[in-house]
Structures are given as C-alpha cells and as structure tokens.
C-alpha cells in the first residue's frame, strides 16, 4: 500500500454512510408505530373451537413439550366425548404449531396476538374458557389459508421506500 493513496478506501466508505443520512429510516418506533405481523403468525396463545373439538387428544400427543392437558369423559346419552378439561401451559409452549397441524377436526388455531406478558406464572396456564375465540383474540392463519386471507397484509421491509427521503 502506497502512503500517498492511504485513506481512499475510508473516504469511499464514508460516502456510503453519509448517503444513509438522506435515506428514509428503516426502523419503526414500536409502541407508537405498529407494523402488521405475518398472516401466519404463530402467536403466544392458542384458540380452541369448542364446537369442533371431539376430545380425541391428538394435539396433546403431538405436543413435543407436553404443554396440553386434556381430560374427557363419555356422554352415553349423546354417544360422544365431553371435554372436561382442556388446558395449555403457555409457559411451556414453544409455539411450534405441531398441535394445530395435527388436529384432524380443525378445532385448534394460533391466536394473532403477541403481547401476552403476565405477572404470574399461574396466569400463563390457560383453561378452556380462556381459549375461546373472541373479537379481541383474533385467529391466525397458520395452516388455515382462508382465515389468513381475512387478516391485514404483512408489512414488509422490501416494500418500504428506503432510497430517498
């Protein structure tokens, strides 16, 4: 390296950084500015469909963490299983989605929520009444493309203009 040419590389590099001054910021300020998450988002909670569930227990068998607990009893008058207890410990859940994938009756979904912090560990355990679908607990489109199409489209960084301000 010749001494007189020393510094050209640094100057070239600095032009890149200076050019970034005049670009749109790529970062969004989270709590105020919210981006749409993926339509297939695997949220922190599960949504359980009371009508469709037959109590077969496939989800509990597939769960690699053993986070799903299901207790059923037989109803002799209607000749079907009654789900007495359906409980998910979201503290153990790793959001892998294998339960939803395996459910043969399409009775289990991911929720589209992600701000699910709790103060106590016991609050992470969700009983079957906590897991029903409500207007606040939207269903994610993971494994359900028809549900995914109803959700808002994901914000992508490739779509954002980052070149000129």
């Amino acid at each position: 390296m010749k001494f007189e040419r020393y510094g050209i590389g640094i100057a070239k590099g600095l032009t890149v950084t200076i050019r970034h001054l005049f670009r749109h910021p790529t970062v969004s300020q989270y709590p105020e500015q919210r981006l749409n998450i993926s339509r297939r988002f695997r949220g922190n909670e599960l949504v359980w469909n009371k009508e469709k569930c037959t109590g077969c227990g496939t989800c509990a068998k597939t769960c690699p963490q053993g986070a799903i607990e299901i207790v059923t009893s037989t109803d002799m008058t209607e000749n079907k299983y009654v789900v007495d207890k359906y409980q998910v410990d979201t503290g153990y859940c790793i959001n892998c989605g294998l339960c939803i994938e395996s459910c043969p009756y399409e009775a289990l979904y991911f929720s589209h929520a992600f701000e699910c912090a709790r103060y106590r560990r016991s609050e992470l355990v969700q009983s079957k009444d906590d897991m029903l679908e409500t207007p606040e607990r939207k269903v994610s489109g993971y494994f359900y493309p028809d549900k995914a199409n109803k959700l808002p489209e994901q914000t992508l960084l490739v779509e954002k203009v980052t070149e000129k301000r």
Partner: peptide
C-alpha cells in the same frame, strides 16, 4: 437491515422470525 428483509419473508412463510 438486509437480513431483516429475509426474515420478513421467513415470517411470511412460517409465522416466526427465529425458530
């Protein structure tokens, strides 16, 4: 920033950003 664009695509197909 460029990785973020890829992770966005992964989030789109799989629903998560890391695992």
């Amino acid at each position: 920033r460029e990785r973020e664009r890829i992770v966005d695509l992964f989030e789109m197909v799989s629903g998560q950003r890391l695992t």
